[in-house]
Design a protein around this nucleic acid. Structure first.
Lengths: 171, 171
DNA sequence: CGTATAATGATATATCTCATAACATACAAG
DNA sequence: CTTGTATGTTATGAGATATATCATTATACG
């Protein structure tokens, strides 16, 4: 099986919030209660859990297309940037050159992408018609997927959130 | 080598923002310019990039302790919840029972965690004194790591951001 | 009480993502 | 021509995560 059906989710937290140091450190965990999670208040932890939640949802959304999230991302970038090279895609998506090779090979083998020679060793990548159709389908599903999560979020807050997230990694 | 030194970072974006459909779809990518990234405006994409940025930074912060982020998370949960069981940690951090086994074994082998028998098959986990010391060191480093990223973010926005992130995966 | 069920820990194994090292080729600059 | 840089490629490994399966123990229930 090539795609996961459920969430991958590394470490996560629980409902309960904890006042720092409010709890006697020597007290053992009460048997029936939810365990306290000291990571709850960390930005990194929250980002990771949130990211994993969305990634797994998107993975499920794309599963029946036999497309992994990474493959879909590459397809979309090629669609938006015809004749882009592997290396350039790698730079845009932060995928190493090395890892772009089997990715591209796979997409070409499936007839979604065409490798064309340009200058030097660089290969100009373009979507084939089936590739373009698949990207259109992906866009629909991504929209549905995003909407599911954005629904929880007041419209007024969305732009601010995106800006804050951009600031985290594009600092 | 057990730890990565640099960012893992799957797909990422570029500085430039694009107005939807503002660009003629048939135009080839200009050679010298940055490629447009159609994922830029997706919440899932921003979450992933932000999460990866923080994960890789934290990984570097913990590298010389020979601790991976996952291991550190488990240690901190045990520290906060003495006599917790493997399964319970798994539920808190969203790590499968199966994957908790080698994790716990490794931490016990290093003398950071002690397995004690309680009721049934469940094993009560506790930090050893070296384990507690290591957790204290981790807390310091995590604080520094978090501060690096939070510095970009106005204080007034922090609580709201955390709440929004919680909403994404705890919906 | 005795059996079925659930929970826990464990083993083995497969897959996905990401990383490094090493190499060949193409082009540009000196 | 030589050197440097960019690109594509192959091979390989580490780490996180997923599934299937099993033994043991506690608990629920007839």
């Amino acid at each position: 099986m090539r795609h996961r059906k459920i969430a991958p989710l590394l470490h996560g937290g629980h409902k309960r919030t904890m006042a720092p140091k409010a709890k006697p450190p020597t007290a053992a965990t009460p048997k029936g209660s939810a365990a306290g999670n000291p990571l709850e208040q960390l930005l990194g932890y929250q980002l990771r859990r949130a990211s994993q939640a969305m990634m797994s949802d998107l993975g499920a959304e794309l599963a029946d297309l036999e497309l992994r999230v990474t493959e879909m991302s590459v397809l979309m970038v090629i669609g938006e940037n015809p004749d882009i090279t592997q290396s350039e895609i790698g730079r845009v998506l932060a995928i190493q050159r090395t890892n772009m090779v089997p990715l591209t090979t796979q997409l070409e083998r499936r007839g979604l992408v065409r490798r064309g020679l340009t200058t030097g060793r660089a290969q100009a990548l373009r979507l084939t018609p089936p590739g373009r159709a698949l990207v259109r389908e992906c866009r629909k599903r991504i929209a549905a997927h995003e909407a599911r999560f954005l629904a929880e979020l007041p419209k007024a807050q969305r732009a601010a959130l995106m800006q804050q997230l951009r600031g985290v990694w594009q600092a």
